[in-house]
């Protein structure tokens, strides 16, 4: 990362100015991948096959990738972007993925994480829980698991690419209609209770990930947040007082959904997503296929000759 830091100051300026002047995306890539002019020329020669590779990235594959591997997309905040760092991070992420299987999961899926723990008795700890939050990008992407153990709610946050993690098992693969399930902290305990020895519930291969439309019942107030104002979909209807309704109407910004510039700043453009995923998708896909093959192998039981 020290390399990144030294290169960062000058190069980023160059990249931004080059973008402004020429408006050619491939030039940006050239600058970021090579320092000297000779290499830049070579890169120009290679430009043709590269651009055809990006065209080969089919639309359904991209649509799937952006939800299955959201951590590969960088934070869209312009001040925090650094193309070289992002590239290095992606290569590090792929290195990690070659060593352990980081499965597809969503907020609402039930996971079991086995990790090395210096403080544990056999140096290994396992935690089972529902994923209530997924945030961050790149190597800093992390998720929060919640479970109720001995009638006490416990939450543990894990970095997805933490080298101490030994295994991530998806016990139940499903989605919820909300982006975050932090409201489970104020919901009745049965909605976040999962047995520690829970058996994995297999999903038939090739079937779409089911969306769980369960309506959660909340505990009585006081709550940790004002859930009634958040427009939650996975919660039984909450009462909103007249006063709050008036306040919400006053604070509402109905024009924001038409603000194209706001959306542009909040998201990574499709062309850039294509560029990012065309770099890693073929290998990710290959890893996924080998994992599936291994799974089938494990499930197959050799028939025993009877008498």
């Amino acid at each position: 990362m020290s390399l990144t830091r030294t290169l960062r100051q000058g190069l980023w300026q160059n990249i931004v100015s080059a973008r402004k002047n020429v408006g050619d995306r491939n030039l940006t890539r050239m600058i970021s991948s090579s320092a000297s002019t000779k290499e830049a020329q070579k890169a120009e020669e290679k430009k043709q096959p590269e651009s055809s590779a990006t065209d080969l990235m089919p639309a359904p594959a991209l649509n799937r990738a952006r939800f299955v591997y959201p951590e590969f997309l960088p934070d869209p905040k312009m001040e925090w972007r650094n193309l070289i760092r992002e590239k290095l991070e992606r290569s590090d992420m792929m290195k990690r993925r070659r060593n352990i299987d980081i499965p597809e999961f969503y907020v609402g899926s039930v996971l079991a994480v086995t990790s090395s723990h210096v403080h544990a008795q056999r140096k290994v700890s396992r935690f089972v829980g529902i994923c209530i939050q997924r945030q961050g990008c790149g190597l800093r992407s992390r998720f929060v698991l919640r479970n109720i153990i001995d009638n006490l709610g416990c939450e543990i946050e894990y970095y997805m690419y933490d080298p101490t993690i030994q295994k991530i098992d998806v016990l139940k693969l499903e989605k919820r209609p909300d982006r975050e399930l932090l409201y489970l902290r104020d919901a009745l305990p049965e909605y976040s209770t999962f047995p520690l020895d829970m058996e994995p519930i297999p999903l038939p291969e090739g079937s779409p990930v089911p969306v769980n439309d369960i309506k959660v019942k909340m505990k009585g107030r006081p709550w940790t947040q004002k859930w009634e104002k958040k427009g939650l979909l996975g919660v039984e209807k909450l009462e909103i007082s007249q006063k709050n309704l008036i306040r919400m109407a006053r604070a509402a910004k109905p024009w924001e959904k038409h603000d194209l510039m706001l959306e542009y700043r909040k998201t990574i453009p499709e062309e850039e997503q294509k560029e990012i995923f065309s770099e890693v998708y073929s290998e990710l896909h290959q890893l996924e296929l080998t994992r599936r093959k291994m799974k089938r192998k494990r499930m197959f039981v050799k028939p025993v000759k009877s008498a």
Partner: peptide, 13 residues
């Protein structure tokens, strides 16, 4: 709120 890998509980015990 705790650092990653440290548990956070629903009550102060």
């Amino acid at each position: 709120h705790q650092i990653p890998r440290a548990p956070k509980f629903d009550s102060n015990n």
